[in-house]
Design a protein around this nucleic acid. Sequence first.
RNA 1: GGGCAUAUAUGUCAAUUGGUAGACAGCCUCCCUUACAAGGAGGAAGUUGGAGGUUCGAGUCCUUCUAUGCCCACCA
Length: 921
Amino acid sequence: MPRFAVKGGLGFDPHLVAFWRPVQLFVMELSKAYEPKEAEEKHYQVWETSGFFKPEANGNASAEKYSIVIPPPNVTGSLHMGHALQHTIMDVLVRRKRMMGYRTLFLPGVDHAGISTQLMVTRQLKQEENKTPKDIGREAFLEKVWEWKNKFGGTITSQMRREGISVDWSRERFTMEDALSNAVKHVFVKLYREGWIYRGARIVNWCPNDRTVLSDLEVVDQTRKDGKLYYLRYPITDSKQTVVVATTRPETMLGDTAVAVNPNDERYASLIGKTVDLPLTGRKITIIADEYVDSEFGTGAVKITPAHDPNDYEIGKRHNLEQLNVMNEDATMNAAAGADFEGLDRYEARKLVLAKFEQLGLLEKIDEYEMTLPVCERCKTVIESLISEQWWVNMSEMRDLALGLKQETGFPHFTPANPHTKVYTNWLENLRDWTISRQLWWGHRIPAYYDQEGRVFVAETPEEAVAEAGTDNLRQDDDVLDTWFSSWLWSFSTMGWADAGFAKSDDINAFHPTDVLVTARDIIFLWVSRMVMSSLKFLGERPFDDVYVTGTVLAADGQRMSKTKGNGVDPLEVFDQYGVDATRMTLAGSSTGMDFAWRDEKVESYRNFANKIWNASRFCLMNSEGASIDPSLLEKSVDAADRWIVSRLNETALAVNKALDGYAFHEAVQILYHFFWDDFCDWYIELTKDEITSGNAEARSRILTVLDQSLRMLHPFMPYLTEELWQKLPGKSAKLHNAAYADADPTIMFADFPIGDQSKVDEAAMSEMAVVIELISKVRNIRAEMRIKNSEPLTVHVAGEAATLKAIGANEARILKLTRAGKIVAEEELSVPKASARTVMTTGAEIAIPLEGLIDFALEIERLEAQIAKLAKEGELLSKQLSNDNFVAKAPADKVAAVRERSAEIEVQLKALSENLDMLK
RNA sequence: GGGCAUAUAUGUCAAUUGGUAGACAGCCUCCCUUACAAGGAGGAAGUUGGAGGUUCGAGUCCUUCUAUGCCCACCA
């Protein structure tokens, strides 16, 4: 419907009347609800272009540093909830420290993601030009990749900007840029010269789809329920006897070079040393004995294929067996498999092998067998084990460095400490050599050069290699390095290590080691541990002090988010629907280190919270004429409510800082949520509303100042909303900044972060307000339970000790307003008619409200009895404790005293309540 | 096979060194009160997975069982 359409035909629409009324003029006009998009679009650009994210924004030469490098997302990636969680956590940490005056470096970057990127560009090439990488050649293909990178590589970084993270984009790095590539070459050469990198043929994980070797960490298990165990019968040479072997992969029998049994297996003792006629091949292979064989499994006899199985490979080495490779790189059978099989895919070959065994009457049986298969982490193709010449890193020195650091200094400290500390150390202790070569084109090409005789020369540049070889007739190794071989240098390669001649650059001196690494569980081995090693090895210092390991964001159904299940939640959609700040609060508020399920209800409630902050600020701004932020007002409050909110402010600041220092993000969020909503909105605004709306300039300034302090504490979590509001506060200026940013344009990003001060917690005000709050709550409770309308004025009678009555007297006007009572009568002893509702306060003070004609006696009796029952139950428990001599003797004195005190309170309350109850009966 | 987590209100999750269980959402009652109905006021709801034990006292520590999840190794 058009905006100004008039409903109906004649007359005027009552909704339109408002337009014609004189518009009320506010000091500041804010819409009724928070619209996140406006703020999100506006502020990030200003922050970034103003240089606020750069460490250089800090003008204090002696400022302490705080630094975090972001785990580089894949250049092909797009933002998911895991990123959003990690980035939120890091940004919260950095923003707070920045506000506290630290010189902060928050460094972003992107990973070239060898396999993913190559696959993506290959696919695109196929689609657009129907060509393969081979068709166009290495150089042309790499050009295509760079083209792709320049065109689409910015997706992830622009999504990161949307998150509001305060990273220094001027220091953004890419693992394939020159400096980082030089670092990789340098490290490779150094390790090679020291003997830690070597080239050798060993059995490896081969992905037939990607046509490259993979490290153990890039291979994952996949359970196959439809697996089968095939029993193949092999005839013993020159004998009627046969031996049956069980296998899940019949096609590999073409490469068998032995059959193995356990030396202690009596069934086969007589066969050891004999040979079998390997069917379909015409080869004879020996029956050997090896402890590896489990007599209990299958038939107790195992076919041995050293070239296609890691265990068989080991056995083969022990027994000097031939390694017969029967497969090609794409998992088709090769010539060695025999003419019938050459060129067949491994699964086709399997069918044919089985058919032929069947024909020969040598297929004993087929069992159903559930099994797990190794598959490629990325493309899920079943991995083939085969023997291949690859580059490896011997990790022993680096393992010792990392373990030594952990043992001697405790670094890095993991949060949560359990189970990550142990997992980390155990993994290091059992570390194996790392396969670093990959049969790809996209990546850091291995700086190894071969001459005509096949001799290898490893050097950082071709020129050096030529010089060393004494000939320029050299060919560079075709392979590239594992992507992680550049990632593991990330903590310092991003800080100018290569440009400083592989020494400490200014940035490294200023910001390394970084303070904390925030990451998900799955790359502790792949990345975290390797960063520790490389940093110790090449820089001589740890890369980070702490490691905060986030939980996994699960889908609403408690399952992992996955594309195939379609249960994923796209953070960008959540940003659109609920706002970035609400999403950040949700993520931070869920971050306990445990996995957690995504719930729309959560983000909805933080969306509501954002709106609450908006409206509370709106109220303050609507009543801000003649007022401005004035921190000195918090120092000299007279009124109890004011001293109370200042106390709560300080308590909150102390608790928030403590929580964040301990990476207890959920706790910090809870504390802020309740401080702002409960203390500030529900109590402080309501208590002071009269003063504020009536134009009391000091009250107005004070509430603005409290709001300012609150927004500052919320800012690390909700950057957009808080900046939007803070910019509107009268009196906002660079004077409110931490001293390190005195010269910057006013922004809440630089406002001094409240750290809290226990000495500013005013106990007298706290207990005075506790009385006021309790009294108001009790009266409201009576109204609600006795169904007395708010419009019905009441008289509240209170009888109790002097302190309580004094507190009530001092805050009479506010109590009257918030309880909508007409009068408060303080007296030594209650003098009220029988027709009254009664209750009692913690201090034992009695409250009664005469309800002539309004009271429902039955209801009131029920109400009192319920209160009595509840208190009596608690009292019973406490007196039981107190009558236990052991408790009194052994429990800490303050605990006993607390129980005594509470017990006494309950006794007083119970007495008062039952007297009141008697009066009604 | 080895290791490690988790099990708390209807749901999702909290609970510092053992001190007697909280939040949010949902639910029930009332209220569109001039910051906010994305709101206000009040309320109901839990023998903390089962069983044993240590302790004056256990959600928290120990043993054991059950269920779920994760990691590592292996899987002929």
